[in-house]
Measured scan of single mutants.
Amino acid sequence: MSDLPVKVIHVESGKILTGTDAPKAGQLEAWLEMNPGYEVAPR
């Protein structure tokens, strides 16, 4: 599992989470399930 943060964006508000606020790569799927409305942000 990776500890690198994955940049995500809230589709409706446009809020972007990066760095320490962003979910870790190894926890991404579970985090997205618990935080509806967020998607992986385009690079």
Rank of each mutant, 00 (worst) to 15 (best):
M1G: 04
M1I: 11
M1Y: 14
M1L: 07
S2R: 14
S2Y: 05
S2N: 02
S2K: 15
D3N: 08
D3I: 01
D3R: 02
D3H: 09
L4I: 15
L4R: 13
L4W: 10
L4F: 13
L4M: 14
L4H: 11
P5M: 11
P5Y: 14
P5H: 11
V6E: 09
V6A: 10
K7P: 15
K7D: 15
K7H: 09
V8N: 09
V8L: 09
I9Q: 07
I9S: 05
I9F: 03
I9W: 10
H10V: 00
H10D: 04
H10C: 09
H10E: 06
V11S: 13
V11K: 15
V11M: 14
V11L: 12
V11H: 04
E12T: 10
D21K: 08
D21M: 12
A22W: 03
A22S: 04
A22L: 06
P23Q: 00
P23E: 02
P23F: 00
P23V: 03
G26V: 04
Q27P: 00
Q27D: 14
Q27N: 14
L28H: 03
L28F: 02
L28E: 08
L28P: 06
L28R: 04
E29R: 09
E29A: 12
E29Y: 03
E29K: 13
E29P: 10
E29G: 10
E29Q: 07
E29W: 01
A30K: 15
A30N: 12
W31H: 08
W31F: 07
W31D: 12
L32G: 05
L32M: 08
L32A: 03
E33Y: 05
M34C: 12
M34F: 05
M34W: 02
M34D: 12
N35V: 00
N35A: 01
N35L: 01
P36C: 12
P36G: 04
P36A: 02
P36F: 00
P36I: 02
P36N: 06
P36R: 03
P36L: 01
P36M: 00
G37H: 00
G37K: 04
G37V: 00
G37I: 00
Y38S: 02
Y38C: 06
Y38K: 05
Y38G: 04
Y38M: 05
Y38A: 03
Y38Q: 02
Y38W: 13
E39K: 09
E39P: 00
E39S: 08
V40P: 07
V40K: 08
V40R: 07
V40W: 02
A41W: 14
A41E: 10
A41C: 12
A41L: 13
P42W: 02
P42V: 08
P42M: 06
R43Q: 14
R43E: 14
